[in-house]
């Protein structure tokens, strides 16, 4: 089974490395409401880690803690071997964590390409002035960043909408553009908040394919929240199950599927 430091090999033969991110005894409260109670788990290099749970279990809050948007009252977040101090979300982004949102958060009036380019922002170093003048360094930098953006566009097969304003795109494609923007940041850790919500079967299949390809091709570590159990069980290497802010299960999809607490949380139990 799992070794604390070494990592493991998945059923399909992928080597999973050491711990990239570790959540230690996280507790998050909003006033009197405790959203997350004393949760610990880790995310390992190269794995696809799913967080599941019924509505209101605190999954999105957990993701927001990982992305630095929420600061937990108790507990520590360790990222790549160091305890993470309190950070602004953009500082977290600079550390190599990118995310997509449950409700799409793209710039609707901008083209797909421009949206993807915004994912490169953390990689741009030239100042406002030199970018406005558009000479030398700034121009080189934009070209280099555009190249990365174009590779992502090619990877996610959205060339045909490169110049289309996002507002004109159907929902499924917007989701893909959001993934493209996150990928353009070349993240070490990619957080996906319900990447398949509201999609039809075909779109889900496409999205699953892309998630697996991203993991396979770039070795990106992925943490995702998803409601579709079929998708979660097929995609992920390990699953954390939450219910009412508590962790009720953690392990491979098979282990989780057979865990009585998990079954109870999803199907309900008779109260006598």
């Amino acid at each position: 089974m799992l070794d604390a430091s070494e990592g493991y090999t998945t059923a399909d033969g992928r080597k999973i490395g050491g711990v990239v991110m570790e959540m230690k005894n996280i507790t998050l409260r909003f006033g009197g409401v405790t959203a997350i109670t004393d949760i610990s788990f880790d995310i390992r290099e190269g794995e696809i880690r799913a967080i599941i749970g019924p509505n209101g279990a605190g999954k999105s809050s957990m993701l927001n803690v990982i992305s630095g948007f929420y600061v937990p009252q108790e507990g520590e977040v360790w990222f790549r071997g160091a305890k993470r101090p309190q950070m602004k979300p953009y500082e977290v982004a600079r550390q190599g964590i990118a995310r997509t949102f449950q409700n799409i958060a793209l710039f609707e009036g901008m083209s797909v390409l421009d949206n993807v380019m915004t994912g490169r922002l953390t990689h741009m170093k030239t100042g406002l002035l030199s970018q406005a003048i558009w000479k030398g360094k700034a121009e080189e930098e934009e070209t280099a960043n555009r190249e990365v953006a174009e590779k992502v566009i090619d990877f996610l097969e959205i060339q045909h909408i490169r110049k289309t304003p996002v507002s004109r795109l159907p929902y499924g494609l917007k989701k893909r553009v959001e993934l493209a923007r996150a990928l353009a940041a070349e993240p070490k850790l990619l957080l996906l908040d319900e990447p398949m919500a509201g999609m039809n079967v075909e779109e889900k299949e496409d999205m699953s394919r892309f998630i697996l390809d991203v993991n396979d091709e770039f070795g990106t570590t992925i943490a995702l929240i998803e409601h579709d159990m079929g998708v979660v069980m097929d995609l992920s290497d390990r699953v954390v199950v939450m219910d009412y802010g508590k962790k009720i299960g953690d392990g491979s999809p098979d282990e989780v599927r057979n865990n009585q607490d998990v079954i109870d949380a999803y199907l309900g139990v008779a109260h006598d």
Binding site: G13, F155, D213, D216, E217
Partner: peptide, 10 residues
């Protein structure tokens, strides 16, 4: 022989 290596690594 294939052109695009994507998804074929394994």
């Amino acid at each position: 022989i294939y052109l695009d290596p994507r998804g074929l690594r394994k």
